[in-house]
Design a binder for these strands. Structure first.
Length: 484
RNA sequence: GGCCCCGUCGCCAAGUGGUAAGGCAGAGGCCUGCAAAGCCUUUAUCCCCAGUUCGAAUCUGGGCGGGGCCUCCA
């Protein structure tokens, strides 16, 4: 089974065959840095993070480029409101973005270029388009002539006549066709600008991604990703300006992630129903957020809600509790004492995981397989005289190791189970009106009562703690506790 | 108005022609002094109607419901 991916360009899944065998060039549209990132940005970046990780796991040498858009109308406006320079503003939010992504546990892309550092490339590309007759200068602006590019709208599958009939496009008097889009914008007073053959100005929104993509990945590359909302106009325009300039196919596979909804509605800045990553991380561990996002297929819409995040926490807790049990048991069974070559459970799990991921990065199915792996592991450990059965211990060890290996591909299980559970427990305890010392004292009192066979008192203590949100866990090793 | 997507168990969510993964919640059982955790068992014929097919949640047509893009947006 080989990797198949859903390509927006062709509207279906197809085998993934990179332009250069063994190597992958991947470009993902980053953020416009004028505000804090919301959960939608988290989804897009986490999705492409696991695509990046899975391609590497599959043996590809991946060059992953993710840009910062650091020159734009919104940046200029926001900077003016705050009375600081565009550069100051964008630097502030680049740093905030980097912090958010680091907290979410994302791998760093190979390159993270900024639009403002590629002005010469952008200008060269615009010049080429003018020379090719695909673009024209008009009062210091430069526009791409959409009618000059026959394949225009092939990605979003529309047609020009219908779009113009939509009549929601104000005909710019500087444009020949209202659908033409800006490659270069003449500077207005007070705006950041660069010298160009058309006077002082700045790049349009779309051209930077074409310029940077080609700069780092070549005129044609394998994967270009982003949110569904970028299909039109952003990616459509990227294709037009890139292919019109080079005469070559720009990107082989276009991948787009679905939206994050709130109450079944798209979350967006204009609706004001968005949650920032920072807000969410105050209440939920980053790995819970990641687990929540990966529990649905990346192209499906996903509904953001407190209840769904709590479910994600429960699911992830099940993994970590199973892993902790395994860690404890395995620590007592000397490594390698069990028979070699008998443990196929880990390999089977990995095969299923790969099969799921090979099918257009089906993380939801892959996680389902991992859940089954946990159950298998728990079942083995619950077997009588488990520790003396070398083949079973070997299976658990194999599964345990597979979890960290496969979890790594999803960016999960990066913590020691014990530490993660303890951290969750302490965070939850902070909301309760009881301290660890009080709990320990109650457990000690109950232990005494139990030794005295005073089960009425023992149960009374347990009920009292339960009312305060504490659940006791008796085991052969003693009594532990967790938050209800 | 044009284009597009979705509708699977109480909830979340896989599954694109071969007889419905998984998680949460629920029920019964094992275990336990009693519990909890864990394990075992158990819970759906896939919005409605018609059609194609030996066979459809999966394909076609119609209907109902929800959403997206067409303007900045992950």
């Amino acid at each position: 089974m080989t990797l198949r991916v859903y390509n927006t360009l062709n509207g279906g899944k197809e085998p993934f065959e990179p332009l250069v065998p063994g190597k992958v060039g991947m470009y993902v549209c980053g953020v416009t840095v004028y505000d804090y990132c919301h959960i939608g940005h988290a989804r897009a970046n986490i999705v492409f993070d696991i695509i990046y990780r899975y391609l590497q796991y599959s043996g590809y040498e991946v060059t992953y480029v993710r840009n910062y858009t650091d020159v734009d109308d919104k940046i200029i406006n926001r900077a003016n409101e705050r009375g600081i320079s565009s550069q100051q503003l964008s630097e502030e939010f680049i740093q905030a973005f980097d912090e958010d992504m680091a907290r979410l546990g994302l791998q760093l892309p190979t390159v993270q270029p900024k639009a403002t550092e590629h002005i010469p490339h952008i200008i060269a590309l615009v010049e080429k388009l003018i020379a090719n007759g695909k673009a024209y200068e008009s009062e210091g602006d430069v526009y791409f002539a959409v009618e000059s590019f026959d394949d225009y709208l092939k990605l979003s599958k529309r047609n020009l006549e219908e779009m113009q009939a939509g009549a929601r496009i104000a005909p710019g008097e500087k444009k020949r066709n209202p659908m033409d889009f800006a490659l270069w914008k003449a500077a207005k007073p007070g705006e950041p600008s660069w010298e160009s053959p058309w006077g002082q100005g700045r790049p349009g929104w779309h051209i930077e991604c074409s310029a940077m993509g080609m700069e780092y990945l070549g005129e044609s590359f394998d994967i270009h990703g982003g949110g569904k909302d970028l299909i039109f106009p952003h990616h459509e325009n990227e294709i037009a300006q890139s292919e019109a300039a080079t005469g070559k196919p720009f990107v082989k596979y276009w991948l787009h992630n679905g939206f994050v909804n709130v109450n079944q509605e798209k979350m967006s800045k204009s609706l004001g129903n968005f949650f920032t990553i920072r807000d969410i991380l105050q209440s939920y561990d980053p790995e819970i957020v990641r687990f929540f996002i990966l529990s649905a297929h990346y192209r499906s819409p996903i509904d953001f809600s407190d209840q769904n995040l709590k479910e994600a926490r429960l699911g992830l807790t099940r993994f970590y509790e199973g892993l902790q049990s395994a860690a404890e048991v395995l620590a007592e069974c000397p490594d390698g004492a069990e028979a070699d070559g008998q443990a196929t459970d880990g390999d089977e799990l990995e095969a299923k995981f790969r099969e799921a991921m090979d099918d257009d990065f089906n993380t939801a199915l892959a996680i389902g397989h991992l859940f089954e792996g946990v159950r298998t592991m728990n079942r083995l450990m619950a077997t009588k005289k488990f520790r003396k059965k070398a083949d079973l211990v070997a299976s658990v060890r194999a599964l345990y190791q597979s979890f960290f290996k496969l979890g790594g591909v999803l960016g999960m299980f990066g913590s020691q189970p014990h530490q993660w559970l303890e951290q969750q427990r302490m965070a939850a305890l902070a909301d309760l009106e009881i301290t660890v010392e009080q709990i320990d004292a109650q457990i000690a009192a109950r232990l005494q009562a139990r030794q005295d066979k005073d089960f009425a008192r023992s149960d009374e203590i347990r009920d009292e703690l339960a009312e305060q949100g504490i659940l006791l866990l008796d085991s052969a090793a003693g009594t532990g506790w967790k938050i209800k």
